[in-house]
Each structure stands twice: as C-alpha cells, then as structure tokens.
Design a protein around this nucleic acid. Structure first.
Length: 354
DNA sequence: AACGTCACGGTTGAA
DNA sequence: CGTTCAACCGTGACG
C-alpha cells in the first residue's frame, strides 16, 4: 500500500512497484535519447531497466508524450456520454423522476438495449455525480443565469491542479491515436506535478540557482503534501510557457495526481538524486567514457546543453526542477505522426525555463 | 551487447 | 461505502 521507500532494481535504481517512474526521469530518458544516447546507456545512466526505457521511448515516439498512461479507473461501460445525456434530459423534464423510471425510458426510447442498460444504481450515481444538482438548478435556473455552470462534475477540490477537465475527453480513452489529441496548445493546462522526487530536484536546483527553499531545508518530515504545496508556490506556472499539455486529452487528471503520493524518502534520496548529484553513489561508469553525457554528475543541466537544443534561457534554469513538467516537454512535436518521429530534431524537447 | 516483448506482482480509481 | 476489475506501472527474463 504505502510504498514509502520503494525498491531497488538490478541497476541500483529506485522504483516503486506498480507506480510510474517520476516524470523527471521519464523526461530525462527522452532527452538523452534525443541527444543520441543509446537506450542501453540511458538505462544504465538512469538506472532504469532497459525494458522500461524502451517502453517510454516507444511511447514517446508514438504519442509524443512522456507521461504515463492513466492508471486505474474504468471506462464507462454503460453510462456512455449518450446515455448520460439522455438521463440528463429526462431529469430536466421531470426532476422528480425515479432512477428506475429513467431506466425504463432508456430502454423504451431505444437509447439502450437490455445489454447495456445501466442499472438503477448506476443511474443514481449518474444523477448524483454527473447531473448532480440539476434538479435544484432547474428550480432556480431562471434567476440563475448560469454564470458559470460547472459544465462538469468539477473536481471536488483543487484548483490547484487546473486540469482541463476530462469529462468528455476522458470518456474516449482510445489508445491515443497521435493525431487525435486536439492539440492542447491552448488547453494550456499547466500541470503542476507534485512529485516527491521533485524535492531532490529542488535540491539540485538550489545548489545551482540558489533557490531558496530553506524554510524546508530539512525535509518535511514526511509530509509530501507540504511539498506539493511548496512546489506549487515555487514553480508557478506563470513562468513557464503554459504550453503544457496535458497530455492526453484522454487522460484524466488522476493520471497526474498520483505522483503526489509518491513518497520518496526525503532522506533516502531516492531516484533522481542518485544520478543527479549524489556523490555517494558509485557512479556507474559508462562503457564509453567519452560519451557526451558524462557530465551528468554535476547538474542535470549538464546534459541538456546539447547542441541541438536551446533552452531559451540559462541552462541552469532549465533544469526541470521538479516533475513540474512544463509542458512542452510532455509532448513532442505536435502531431507526431508515427513514423517521422524518427528524426531527432523533429520534436526537440523544448524545455521551458523553470 | 543491444533491444523488443511479455509475464509478473503491484497500484489505482471509476463503476 | 466497500468491492470489483480493467486499466496502467516497472522489473526482470527471455529470445
């Protein structure tokens, strides 16, 4: 249940079984690959199994996203958007209608057949979750003017994560056909990515940019949430080009949020650090010492300064400080059409300064 | 040696 | 509110 510390793989890397790798690492995998570094070397450098590197790169080439897929949940089986729409309509016309009546009507109207007819409890859930206060609303609606009628079931809390909500989109969790996601360019949902390991990243950064996080120099005793807060405040989206993507349009927010739980030990210095700074770790010696990525040890930005790309500002700043992947990175070029994904410059990962 | 693939044991979250 | 179950995860091993 609670990963807490994670496990160590054969390469010495830390991972949490069942959970995605931190985004910073996913990002680095892609970055390194774009610099021409071989997957096997990336694997060793980042201490991530080659199977995983392979998978992440393959996905990136295919979808343009470095982000993990949506975990958990389930697709609506019977409560498809169409069904929901009809239910809403019934409810609007007759706010006092019972779930079982709705059910009968769905069948009678041919919206559903006996095989995909939602159960009464499903309908109730829809009424509660998706249609919600509709009935109340309808009572007041004349006066209400619906200034901002939450079009969707809005997430309970958090504006913090300003996700473009997924309702419609999430329904279509098609295997992300690359062309499909209507490019989020403007969706601009900057995802704040409160991943714990950002902590270590932050540390790295601090050493470089002197970011002052001192107020927490000693890591929050375990409370990751605090960190997420910190991250949020320290890395306001404003600074970064809001291009983010949220990726997968089809990806509901939950795919993001989980990272927050990624408890990585504060002291254990899990993942990232191990290769970012960590002098303590016996650096893996790449077979080819001459490789461009040698400078890895110092700062993450070291390898970023590749010839091919220009973080538009000091490289030091570039450092993806946390999982706060500011979007451009999350996606590669926009319409990554399957095969042309090959040329490296096609979608240079553009990093936005902090 | 490199890498694609997949079984496995795991987590997650909508239904 | 608790359970189900299908989605995804990364590792590790095989070819």
């Amino acid at each position: 249940m609670e990963p807490a510390f994670g496990e160590v793989n054969q390469l010495g890397g830390v991972f949490v079984n069942g959970r995605p790798l931190p985004n910073a690492i996913r990002l680095r995998i892609v970055e390194l690959a774009q610099l021409g570094i071989r997957p096997c070397d990336i694997s060793r450098q980042l201490r991530v199994s080659h199977g995983c590197v392979s998978k992440i790169l393959a996905r990136y080439n295919e979808t343009g996203s470095i982000l993990p897929g949506a975990i958990g949940g389930s697709k609506p089986r019977v409560t498809t958007p169409t069904v929901v729409k009809h239910i809403r309509t019934y409810k609007q016309r007759d706010p006092g209608i019972f779930a079982w009546e709705i059910r009968d009507r769905l069948l009678a109207d041919g919206v559903c057949d006996k095989f995909n007819l939602p159960s009464v409890s499903s309908i109730s859930r829809i009424l509660r979750n998706k249609i919600g206060n509709l009935s109340q609303q309808s009572q007041y609606e004349s006066s209400k003017q619906s200034s901002h009628p939450p079009p969707q079931p809005t997430l309970p809390y958090n504006h913090i994560y300003s996700y473009p909500t997924p309702i419609g989109a999430s329904g279509t969790k098609v295997p992300t056909p690359p062309g499909m996601h209507s490019l989020p360019g403007h969706m601009a949902m900057h995802r704040i990515w409160p991943s714990s390991h950002s902590v270590t990243d932050i540390l790295g950064i601090r050493s470089i940019t002197e970011q002052q996080i001192s107020d927490n120099s000693s890591f929050p005793s375990g409370k990751l949430e605090e960190w997420s807060v910190i991250n949020r405040t320290h890395f306001p989206p404003s600074a970064s080009s809001p291009l983010v993507n949220g990726v997968q349009d089809d990806k509901p927010p939950h795919s993001i949020e989980p990272e927050a739980k990624y408890k990585q030990t504060q002291s254990g210095l899990p993942t990232v650090n191990s290769y970012v700074t960590a002098p303590s770790i016996p650096a893996y010696h790449p077979p080819t010492p001459v490789s461009p990525y040698m400078g890895y040890s110092a700062t993450t930005s070291a390898y970023v300064t590749g010839p091919t790309w220009q973080p538009h500002s000091g490289s030091a700043l570039y450092h993806h400080s946390c999982d706060n992947i500011t979007a451009p990175l999350a996606f590669k070029g926009m319409t990554a059409h399957h095969r042309d994904a090959i040329h490296p410059h096609a979608h240079p990962i553009t990093a936005s300064a902090l």
